[in-house]
Simulated assay, not measured.
Amino acid sequence: MRVFSGSTRIEAVAPDDRGLAYGDGLFETMRAARGEVPWWDAHCERLQAGVRRLGMVLPDIGLLRAEAAALLAGDDAVLKLIVTRGSDGRGYAPELTATPTSVLSRHPLPPTPPAAGIALRWCATRLALQPALAGIKHCNRLEQVLARAEWNDPAAADRDAFDGLMCSTEGDVVCATAANLFVLKNGRWSTPTVDRCGVAGVCRAWAKAALDAEETRLDVTDVETADAVFLCNAVRGILPVARLGARQWLPHPQVAALRAQLASNHPAFIA
């Protein structure tokens, strides 16, 4: 196993690495507090599930954790881990026993989102249905790249949006470009199923259990008529939504309570 680490990476990944050539790999983006990753085990469980799904060799998790601790050096930071199948010859047929390439990198914490809640927009780019890849965090994120580019244009509507919501090609709402979605309606929390596309987020799993939320198919109307909406991911935690297009929401006590509960569970999200 090869392990590269550094906040400024100067090591070279082999030109025939399948992660570079085909996106044949997985990644995890983690929030660290004082050099520790509180959800390390949850991230590793998802990584292991992805490795099994893709038929890859699992890297040495113990070595990766030691490298991560050295890289973080006791600081608050964002830690990214990329695991690819490794180097192989040209062609799609994978070498099932190839030595994986693991890349660890450290990044600054993201800016603090607006205290009053974030603004969202709808994305025109749709997510293709592919159950074989649904749920895992694989390295092909071109749909999200295209979606996020939609409001880079200075003339774009909702250019101030924090994130955008994405639907599948069949029209059901799946997620934001970089977060999972939860909505409150008729006293019940729900989150989109990710059995055909989308990522089963680590923070999503925590919030789903904390809220006893159901997984279901949601359409655009379900979101726009919800009583409360929030996004979540493992780096930013719980993000209350204040606006989606013309629809606006006031701060909701259940979302505030969930953020407080998360702060007691994960020291990086203490307000």
Rank of each mutant, 00 (worst) to 15 (best):
S7W: 09
D24E: 13
L26N: 07
M30R: 04
E36C: 06
P38A: 13
W39S: 10
W39I: 00
W40G: 03
W40N: 04
D41N: 11
G55E: 12
L58C: 11
D60L: 14
L63P: 00
R65N: 13
A70W: 06
L71C: 08
A73H: 10
D76Q: 07
S87K: 13
S87T: 15
D88V: 02
D88M: 03
G89Y: 10
R90W: 13
G91M: 05
A93F: 07
A93E: 14
L96K: 08
T97C: 07
T97W: 08
P100C: 06
S105P: 00
P108F: 11
L109N: 03
P111M: 13
P114G: 10
W122G: 10
W122L: 06
W122V: 09
L127T: 01
Q130M: 12
A134Q: 13
G135E: 15
H138G: 06
R141Y: 15
E143V: 04
Q144C: 08
A149E: 12
W151C: 03
A155V: 00
D163C: 08
D163N: 08
T177P: 01
L181K: 02
L181P: 00
T191F: 06
P192C: 11
D195C: 05
G198T: 09
V199W: 00
A200C: 12
A200K: 06
A205Q: 12
W206P: 00
A209F: 03
L211F: 09
E214M: 05
E215T: 09
V223E: 11
T225E: 11
T225D: 15
C232G: 03
G237E: 14
R243K: 13
R243N: 12
G245M: 13
A246S: 14
A257E: 14
Q261G: 02
Q261K: 13
N265R: 11
H266M: 14
P267Q: 06
F269P: 00
I270Q: 12
I270P: 00
